[in-house]
Design a protein around this nucleic acid. Sequence first.
RNA 1: AGAUCCGUAGCUCAGCCUGGUUAGAGCACUACACUGAUAAUGUAGGGGUCAGCAGUUCAAAUCUGCUCGGGUCUACCA
Length: 1150
Amino acid sequence: MPNHTHKPAQISVPLPPSKNSRKEPNFMSEKYREFSQLNLPAMEQEILAKWNESQAFEKSVSLREGATPFVFYEGPPSANGMPGIHHVISRTLKDMVCRYKTMKGFQVKRKGGWDTHGLPIELGVEKELGITKEDIGVKISVEDYNKKCREAVLRYKDKWDDITKKMGYWVDLNDPYITFQNSYIETLWWLLQQLYKKGLLYESVSIQPYSPAAGTGLSSHELNQPGTYKDVKDTSCVAMFKALKSDKTKFLFDAAGNDEVYYLAWTTTPWTLPSNLGLTVGPNIDYVLVSTFNPYTHLPVNVVLAKALVGKYFKADGENGDFAGYSAETKLLPWKVLTEFKGKDIEGVYYEQLLPYEANSKEAVLTITPDADPFKVIVGDFVTTEDGTGIVHTAPAFGADDYRVGKKNNIGILTMVDREGKFVDGMGEFSRRFVKNYKDDPAYVDVNIDISVKLKKENRAFKVEKYEHSYPHCWRTDKPILYYPLDAWFIKTTAIRDQMVALNKTINWKPKSTGEGRFGNWLENMVDWNLSRSRFWGTALPIWKTEDGEVLKCIGSMPELWEEMAKADAALGLTQVLDFTAKGLDLHKPYVDAIVLVSEDGKAMKRVPDLIDVWFDSGAMPYAQWGLDYDKLKAGDPRPFKAPFDTNYPADFIAEGVDQTRGWFYTLHAIASLVYGSVAYKTVVSNGLVLDKNGNKMSKRLGNVVDPFKTIETFGADATRWYLITNASPWDNLKFDLEGIKEVQRKFFGTFYNTYQFFALYSNVDGFAFKEKYIPVAERPEIDRWVLSTLNTVIKRAGEYMDDYEPTQAGRVIEDFVDEQLSNWYVRLCRRRFWKGEYEHDKVCAYQTLYECLETIARLMAPISPFFSDMVFRNLNAVSGRFTVESVHHADYPVFDSSVIDTDLEERMKMAQDASSLVLSLRKKVNIKVRQPLQKILIPALNQAMMVQFDKIADLVKAEVNVKEIQYLTEDNGFIRKKIKPNFVALGKRLGPKMKAAAALIGAFNQDDISKLEKEGSVSLEIDSEPLILQISDVEISSEDIPGWMVANKDSLTVALDVTVSPELEQEGNARELVNRIQKIRKDNGYELTDRILVKVSDSGALKESIGQFNAYICAEILADSLEIVSELPNGTEIEVNDIPLKVFVTKKA
RNA sequence: AGAUCCGUAGCUCAGCCUGGUUAGAGCACUACACUGAUAAUGUAGGGGUCAGCAGUUCAAAUCUGCUCGGGUCUACCA
């Protein structure tokens, strides 16, 4: 966050330890709360109630009043559908970042919002009413229809509010922005007016997907409904366009011996051929003129096509074949290349129209586009040599590329097909025939075949075949769509493409590749934004036009509209309703359509009927969520939005799914760039999809959707959130598996819970409330210093990861600490410290250390799992009162203390862990249980430093693995045998190709060579008669196995274990075993931890000595006041100690 | 078709940026152990041609290219 070089508000530093004068907050309690079991969902309910009571969310914002804002924008969901699990992941991300930044001292306001316009809502209403688009305004009035839509948009708002609450998403839903509100729409109008004034809003014909069967244009959204693209077989045709001779084409005719020359062009839609007006070639593509025969008419022909595609039409064997002997029966077509040239060489040359009729004559073209210059060869960059012939048949009306290149080259436009999908009159035998079977006519004859046959007969087809490709179909009628020219309003985004690209480079994308790749490429290839939608429920385009289309007005606010209406009333003698809002009307259809304005010269103006793309709604939320400020507007403020806007723009952070890359991320970026030349957001996290556990997309159809309510009710929001965050990076697709949540619940929350329970249990016994002075870390035992060092390393790393928007890494660091370090090492090793001995220095150290770990972990994990962390924090703080704030979410994020981090200590503890694990594995191999003490282990000490390090943790290891002593093997005592291995990283860089020889040489070192190297620090060798000075750092030295010992090793650490059990050791083992049995009896009898007992044991020869010798030890362990051996014990419990049967009798001391 | 992400143990993922010689965790499975955190824990074991092919290199899970498979977005373009 380079932009935040400020001082965060410090409001929640721990209080100075114990002062009697301190006033205790009302949440204080005597004892740490203990639980009977871990029930996350129930616990969350409880915390939710607390949050609710104390307005915890509101407080988390108000407590940071005056701090630097961290600006977050909520992408508005549509409450028209049920929330799904994929919403939970992006909202977890959003919530986590906002909570984290709050804990970091920023003030993070989160205004919620609802997306309320658009096709999905309309389609839902249509379905509900059982009508289609055509019925609107006929069977139901537009007014009633829109009323229905308005009711439908917030249909599932309750469900959304519910999931928001239950998942712990803190967002302000009391005052959300709603896109259908007048003030919201008004702001959009103002923005559109800005664009209009800049000349960036224009009307034009565009080629759009159109469904003749349904008689309507289709939005890209509709085109992306599942199943719209189908593989179909269409008749494709390579047509022959006859070249006309001119100065520029003379070389072709010369090469062809003045015979006819044809340009070959391929199409999968022969019905577009009558609308052909040009042929597009690639300027730098190589073309050839080939002499051959027409395979249908067998007439000799000369054809032009891309050189790269010759092989597609001609067999290599036929090159320079037998022209003279060619007949209709000849299978192999002879051919030869006459000449070769570039596409640009024939730019602008004319050809003969392929299928001339009355309706598509040149005169007809000139009537539509008076100065058009059709039937010529033009160049275009989009031409490839992957399909077809490298020459593109260009019918501007039926393809977006065609339209663009056609317009640029002024070849006119012909639309020989009407909106029902049939040929217009004046098309000879094809007039009024449907270009595809739109009417389910069983007698339908494919007009594409007829056109192809006609071309074949006329020597104008070179190849006709079925071609399989995927083609879009209307999702409603299942009929193929066609691309058709329709009027539409556009935003000229292409005018500021460079700026948008440059601004994008300043945005921090997570992951980076989405910003550079998917989004970056999209910007590079951007086309103008088609705003028009011919629907009913949406933001109306605020443009009024005179009947003749000469004068236009773009309205930018409600006051402006009232003013213009008043003018019109005066000029035209109307009585329009001026104040909509007072009369309960709104800025939707049909009301806005009824408004008449007036031009300067007194002509009536009506609104153009278009609505705008809903994506404009959401992209404009940075401005429209606040609405227009009329005072600022009057004063001509370039940013006339209500107050919080100034400190809330642009956003520091937004997050949504990758599917929004070309959606919300784009429209936010486009509008900010267009209107203010600014970014709308500084950091954007695009999370991946949530798939089912098999990697399939979740869909209602497949029935594999995960119900977020059920998930949270069953496993808890925290476990779900933790799983979502730590399982995979947010931008990777997530294979959602409930088993994964269970694992998180057990492994992470279960472990943390156990650790807390352990702490609470003993603290409550000892009355630890952190009232003692904070013991300086340096004065605590090694293991305490170690766990605090590790904790601070974790704080450091977790914070860095969070700052870098890498929550997965942060979560894993925390998880690993809780499980591996805190629970399975610190607590395990320190258990005795909590229940043995008096309440003095060492015990207080242990309590303070464990307390600090728990409290810190709670704060570290709070952004990810807000409930459990708050529960732990509150329970700890209730007794200690270290924080004045009541919730973890009002506390500060932990800050690491580098003075506590001791890397040497962490390293040697790692060594202790490894050594213990090795010894335990050795014990396992020879089947000697840990309770049986063993005499010693041997550690080969490779050098003095290692010995010093190990010595400091020797006691820990001894206790952990139950051995009496550790002995080091050094060169001095002659036991150690070392082995040597080259350090490939260091040596490889220096030696390169000689590495292999060096490895062989080093491998051949004997003990003397190794000790010489160690003693002198380097030795000189010779490789390929070149000298090499081998440094000690160029090799890795470890110890070899020790003959006659049980040995295990890991990396450079080797451990040997003395497995002889002497009689003394065996007795001690027996004593320990007895302790274990009696402890079990204590527990079975249900004694309290602190109960004292009396023990009698039946006389057993085998154990007598052991009991005698270790009597004091045993009594201390089992809290017994006496341990007696008696000869008769009729009521005793029968037990076995290492296969020795005996009876014991345990009673509680009164 | 283009862009992009992904492919490592039965499953979920590290490691890849910055190449280095036994490829790691966790879950699951099996066996054993531990036992005043106990519906917890430890140890061990099996299980991998690191999707495939080719290249660069002394050395490739790691870098490059291609192929295959999966996801998403964009497009459907003759």
